[in-house]
């Protein structure tokens, strides 16, 4: 009886061993093969390029129309140029913009018995605002502002003394960050579990979806001293 038991256990062990080995090899094979992730990545990339091409096509059409208009005569030419300038101003952030989006209000949490002085482990205004803006950008924000300062490509968010400077202009809490984009998408980027709002304890962050926001224009004069346009060879 004992012997029969040992034999069957031995037999089963062999089978088990074989199966484990086989299992191991197939798992290895999956790794070595092309993962479906990669195909997904490529498909996304392809879609992205196709989208870019559509946008580029309409851009070139638009430019061609303007050039055709400019060829008609002097008044038309200046009109076409002004239209183009206006378009650039919009993208650069020199004009007011309106649209749906998200309003984020950020205020420091008032705690009893805590001095504002010991701020070693408190998330700084600068870091927090940088992260909020970065999250909103990642969620597809098309235009952003903090306390009526429009965020353009050269805008900084910087601690200067005990204040925050944006566009070299002092702002102070509570902060109001406005972002134009898809309201739901913008909201979930901040409210996602383990996300920014979830993990920030020393700040009171409230978000409100808005059907229409009005974003201020960048109000300062820009004089580029160092960057010169790089033209293509004539």
């Amino acid at each position: 009886m004992n012997r029969a038991l040992y034999l069957s256990i031995g037999f089963v062990s062999v089978i088990l061993g074989l199966m484990i080995a086989f299992q191991f090899r197939t798992v290895e094979q999956v790794d070595a093969g092309v993962s479906s992730d990669r195909a997904q990545l490529l498909t996304n990339q392809l879609k992205e390029i196709e989208k870019e091409m559509v946008a580029l096509q309409s851009e070139t059409n638009d430019l061609e129309n303007k050039l055709a208009k400019a060829a008609k005569g002097r008044p038309e030419a200046s009109e076409a140029v002004l239209e183009e300038l206006q378009k650039n101003h919009q993208i650069a952030g020199f004009t007011e913009l309106k649209g749906p989006g998200l309003e984020v209000r950020i205020a420091p949490v008032q705690k009893e018995g805590q001095h504002n002085g010991s701020s070693l482990f408190i998330v700084s205004d600068e870091d927090l605002l940088l992260r909020v803006v970065n999250e909103l950008r990642a969620a597809g924000a098309e235009a952003l502002s903090i306390n009526s300062q429009r965020i353009i490509s050269t805008s900084e968010i910087r601690l200067a003394g005990s204040f925050i400077n944006v566009n070299l202009t002092r702002i102070s809490p509570p902060y109001s960050v406005l972002a134009i984009g898809i309201p739901d998408q913008l909201e979930s980027s901040l409210l996602i579990k383990g996300g920014l709002v979830d993990t920030t304890k020393d700040w009171d962050i409230s978000v409100t979806k808005q059907g229409e926001l009005l974003l201020p224009a960048y109000k300062h004069r820009i004089k580029l001293e160092y960057a010169k346009p790089l033209r293509e060879a004539k």
Binding site: V81, E84, L85, N88, H89, I91, A92, G93, F94, I152, S153, T154, I222, L224, Y226, A227, K228, P229, L230
Partner: peptide, 17 residues
């Protein structure tokens, strides 16, 4: 004005120090 807005918008290639 055209150059400035294009550079700030990020459309225009630029050169400089």
């Amino acid at each position: 004005a055209m150059d400035t807005s294009r550079i700030i918008a990020g459309i225009q290639a630029v050169t400089g120090p």
